[in-house]
Design a protein around this nucleic acid. Structure first.
Lengths: 181, 181
DNA sequence: CGCCGTTATGTACGCTCGTACACATGGGAT
DNA sequence: ATCCCATGTGTACGAGCGTACATAACGGCG
């Protein structure tokens, strides 16, 4: 009976949950699969996360934070002298080229939020966070449009399996942004 | 033992499946729930659709056809003299205001296609169909961008629960379309 | 050092699921 | 009229699920 009193176990369970969703999809996320992936007994996952919704929320929130880090690293977003469309296209490229699992988790939970009200506020955090950053660069209508377009582009990449075309993204994003003064 | 030799039973099962997804979500789609909704014995659903994937494909395909009918009714889409952005915004409004169940089914199966390869070609039909219609009106890059934007707007409406703003959609769609000659 | 609440563990229960399969049935070809 | 096969039906099985719970180990605290 090794590894009693394992601090950070909760965190390891969350990491395992993200891996599971990345490999088997959201439908494959169960207490048991997570327990196996994290190499902990079944009771351990149910102890730290009484319900599956709790675990999903924790995983989605962590994925959100990971995305927030990527955006924060892109200081150009808030710098009014940069090309906003280019910055957004680069940001999306970085995100998509990085951990595919994170992107898929994001979108799977995104859609799961349609049916599970518990997930909705967390799912909205992604868009809200980005909207807040963009608010300083352009008007609210444009912000909403940019986010919708980013979502749509992401979806196309994920669904059609085509690789991400940054130049294309930059071009169409720039069309949405009204011409400057 | 009434109702032996029930022609059109297969169709009734598909209709029931669409209703089930609309009410309980894709996760609630099982042979048993569909059988109950269609008021047929369990064995009947497994006879007509050996696997759940088959049933999903049939339901998604029917939903696609229903959408195709709506677009076909909008003759203005192919008429080069109409305002393309306005036509698309109106089309989306009609679709969203219509059967909510159909829209949600479309998007739930859309995302399910991420994990179930069997669904992918059917999921792509929606976009392909629309793309084909739009090909006569503008260039391929713009077509892709328009579809991505439509997807993103739909997603925002479904997820945030906000009502569809047609004027907003028309505005941002028009920005994507390059100025005419 | 001993106590106690937090953390960890293993097992068991009740449920739903997909699927298989043996059997009934009826209509169309002969 | 008879036969045959596509169609329809009911049941059973094994697997996996969420959850509950009794019990064990641990570590901080008096």
């Amino acid at each position: 009976m090794p590894r009693r009193h394992d601090p950070g176990r909760r965190q390891r369970i969350i990491d395992a949950a993200i891996r599971v969703v990345g490999e088997k999809g959201l439908a494959g996320l169960t207490h048991r699969t997570v327990a196996a992936e994290a190499d902990v007994p079944l009771g351990s996952t149910t102890y730290h996360f009484a319900t599956l919704d709790e675990l999903m929320v924790a995983a989605l929130r962590q994925s959100n934070e990971s995305f927030a880090k990527v955006t924060a690293a892109h200081g150009g977003l808030t710098d009014p002298d940069t090309d906003l469309a280019a910055e957004l296209a680069a940001l999306l490229g970085e995100w998509l080229s990085g951990e595919r699992a994170g992107v898929e988790l994001e979108y799977e939970l995104y859609l799961a939020a349609l049916r599970r009200p518990a997930l909705r506020p967390v799912a909205a955090e992604w868009a809200d966070d980005l909207a807040e950053r963009l608010a300083h660069r352009t008007d609210p209508v444009t912000v909403r449009a940019l986010i919708a377009l980013l979502d749509g582009i992401c979806l196309q990449v994920l669904l059609t399996g085509t690789s991400y075309d940054e130049a294309y993204a930059r071009e169409v994003l720039s069309r949405v942004i009204p011409a400057g003064p």
